[in-house]
Write a protein that binds this DNA or RNA. Structure first.
Length: 195
DNA sequence: AGCACGATTAACT
DNA sequence: GTTAATCGTGCTC
């Protein structure tokens, strides 16, 4: 695929909430054993700055959060709950810690491979959660820090069809039960409705 | 000690 | 059909 189809770095170098909203409808592509696995992004969340108490950067610059402080357009992949990987896209200017969590996609290419990696599950449950997306597309800690804007990247994004406002649900982020307000309820979650 | 979750089970309508 | 509760797992601070 020609490079002009890929999202360039400027796409990520904006306000994190704007990036999270605009990522809906774009395509996530993973090259795995030479095969394209991809899907349309249908759910994202914004995590922004050290003041955002829902964001990992609330702990400041650590070995874990270092990637979030770096250049936009990189992958921040972390491990949690003893078994799950999560994929984020680093946003805003170099030095400011922020990222968009990828929560769900609609599978597009490499369906057989995705089905095999989610064996035994109904199609609806293949990629409808952040850890499920990572399992389906073979994304793990080895992807942490990857530059998604390099031509040879095996993980990147491509332009898709933007989702109109009428088909987007906005609400509070998921799984922040012990986070104080206003961060717990701030509407930084974006979901594209099914067509 | 807590965690940006998922699978399973139980109890509902 | 749905929602609520529980727990596994190991890394981070």
């Amino acid at each position: 695929m020609p490079d002009e189809q890929r999202l360039p770095r400027w796409f990520f170098a904006r306000h994190t909430v704007e990036v999270a909203r605009q990522l809906l409808g774009m395509r996530l592509v993973r090259i795995w054993h030479g095969q394209r696995l991809s899907g349309v992004i249908v759910e994202t969340e914004a995590y922004r700055g050290e003041e955002d108490l829902g964001c990992h950067a609330r702990a400041g610059l650590t070995a874990r959060t270092r990637v979030m402080y770096g250049q936009p357009g990189h992958a921040y992949v972390y491990f949690t709950y003893g078994m799950h990987w999560m994929l984020n896209f680093v946003t805003e200017e170099d030095g400011f810690p922020a990222a968009v969590l990828l929560r769900a996609i609609m599978p597009l290419e490499g369906i057989e491979t995705i089905a095999a990696r989610r064996k035994g599950k109904p199609e609806r449950l293949w990629t409808n959660g952040p850890a499920k997306v990572c399992q389906a597309l073979a994304i793990d800690g080895s992807c942490n820090g990857l530059d998604l804007c390099l031509p040879q990247a095996e993980l990147f994004l491509e332009w898709g069809k933007p989702i109109p406002d009428g088909r987007v649900t906005i609400g509070p982020r998921v799984g922040l039960n012990n986070v104080p307000e206003p961060w717990k309820s701030i509407p930084w979650r974006f979901v594209a409705l099914e067509q």
